[in-house]
Design a protein around this nucleic acid. Structure first.
Lengths: 131, 131
DNA sequence: ATTATTATTGTATAATTGTATCATTGTACT
DNA sequence: AGTACAATGATACAATTATACAATAATAAT
């Protein structure tokens, strides 16, 4: 993977890993769809604990740059999130809503009940975030 | 089989498969007595290991919804447990709603807008049914 | 028709991968 | 010194995959 770290720079290892990988994706050394080394493999290469690599991967995951999947590995995402256009966003949302409504109706739930369930679900989610 | 998975959702694949199949049975897209794809066939379609599908099938089997038979295949049972039928319908609806809400929020739409879009969509549908 | 062989199906177990939690270390600031 | 906090490590865990296996069906051989 050829990823150089500076253990004396004072910059946390996990941040260095994040930056190096960002660079490699930006300049094409790593390609969308490709697989990154496993946390353990990269950690061994860097002589570092695998949790440190996992932390770097998690940050890149939350940034929408890679996708980490338990048991499968971590992959570079196809479309680094350069803010998809508004019209695409609305279209995606519309078709999503369309499909949901069709599915719910097919299950035999009446419109009011569907709205009620959605409101309920939103409420649960909010409370869940409160921790 | 037309079964969509989200590898980034954090929800285990085998649970997603369980939910999707529950939905398809609950809303009639899959019929009692019918045969499900073999674990290997479905796994190939989903780009997943067949043990992951087997795990989903086992859960559905233990719930009394399908019957998996070594060397023969897996079949949808004729009489879903009477109590199971209604709860299955509700479970399917719940997971459907959960997934829709998560997807919509990820697209960046606020709760009120989601509800509004759904109401709008219902209205269109009603009018569309009238001749 | 019967039997043997091969292919296809689900099952069991171990290995691999990322995740969660807590302990340890080091550094900055009182 | 002592405290607080961030970074890293150790350990246990859950999801997925890899491999070998057993049961049933399908086919070939006789």
């Amino acid at each position: 993977m050829n990823l150089e770290l500076d253990f004396r720079s004072g910059i946390p290892i996990y941040l260095q890993v994040v930056d190096r990988i960002r660079e490699m994706i930006a300049d094409g050394r790593l390609k969308p769809g490709g697989q990154l080394p496993t946390v353990r493999a990269l950690a061994a290469e860097l002589r570092v604990n695998f949790n440190t690599v996992a932390r770097a991967y998690r940050i890149l995951d939350e940034a929408g740059i890679i996708s980490t999947q338990q048991g499968r590995g971590t992959y570079i995402l196809e479309n680094p999130p350069p803010a998809e256009s508004e019209s695409m966003r609305r279209a995606a949302f519309a078709s999503l809503t369309d499909r949901y409504l069709a599915d719910a109706l097919r299950l035999g739930f009446p419109p009011e009940e569907i709205l009620a369930a959605l409101r309920q679900q939103m409420k649960s989610k909010e409370e869940g975030v409160e921790k």
